[in-house]
Amino acid sequence: MIRHIVLIRFRPDVTEAKIAELFAELHQIEGKLPGLLGITSGRSESPEQMERGYMHGFVADFRDWDGLQAYQDHPDHQAIGAKLTEHADQGKAGILCFDLPVTD
Rank of each mutant, 00 (worst) to 15 (best):
S46R: 03
W65D: 07
H87S: 08
R3V: 06
F98L: 15
H56N: 14
H4Q: 12
A88V: 11
R63C: 01
Q28M: 08
L22C: 06
G53C: 11
Q90H: 13
S46D: 07
I19S: 07
I29Q: 06
I95R: 03
G81F: 00
D104N: 07
A93V: 11
Q49D: 13
D104S: 11
M1Y: 10
M1D: 04
D13M: 12
T85S: 06
P101W: 01
A17I: 10
Q49I: 07
I29F: 01
H56P: 03
G57A: 02
S46P: 01
V102Y: 08
Y54I: 09
A24F: 03
A82R: 13
Q49L: 13
D76N: 05
R52P: 00
T85E: 05
I2S: 01
I80T: 05
Y54D: 07
D64V: 02
L33D: 01
P47R: 15
F58Q: 02
E16L: 09
I80K: 01
L7I: 09
K83E: 06
D13N: 15
H27I: 09
L100G: 07
H77E: 09
L37M: 09
L26P: 02
L26Y: 01
I8P: 03
Q28K: 15
S44G: 08
Y54W: 13
T15N: 05
D104G: 13
Y54G: 09
L36I: 12
G53F: 10
P34V: 07
K92D: 11
M50L: 14
G38R: 06
H56F: 15
P34Y: 08
Q90E: 12
A60L: 01
G35A: 07
P101Q: 05
A79G: 05
G42C: 05
E16V: 11
V14I: 15
D64I: 04
D104Q: 14
G91Q: 11
P34T: 12
R3A: 12
T85P: 00
H4R: 04
A20C: 08
F58A: 04
M55R: 14
P75K: 10
G31E: 00
M50D: 05
R63E: 11
S46W: 02
H74Q: 09
D61N: 05
H27P: 01
G81Y: 00
G42K: 06
G91H: 07
P101M: 02
P47V: 15
L84P: 01
D104Y: 10
P12V: 14
V102T: 08
L22P: 01
V102K: 14
Y54F: 15
P47G: 05
A70N: 06
L37N: 00
V59Y: 00
V14R: 13
M55D: 14
E48H: 03
F23V: 14
L33H: 03
I19E: 04
W65R: 10
L36R: 05
M1P: 04
Q72M: 14
M50K: 15
H87R: 07
Q49M: 13
E45Y: 12
D61H: 03
D89I: 04
E86R: 11
A24T: 11
G42Y: 04
G67K: 00
V59K: 00
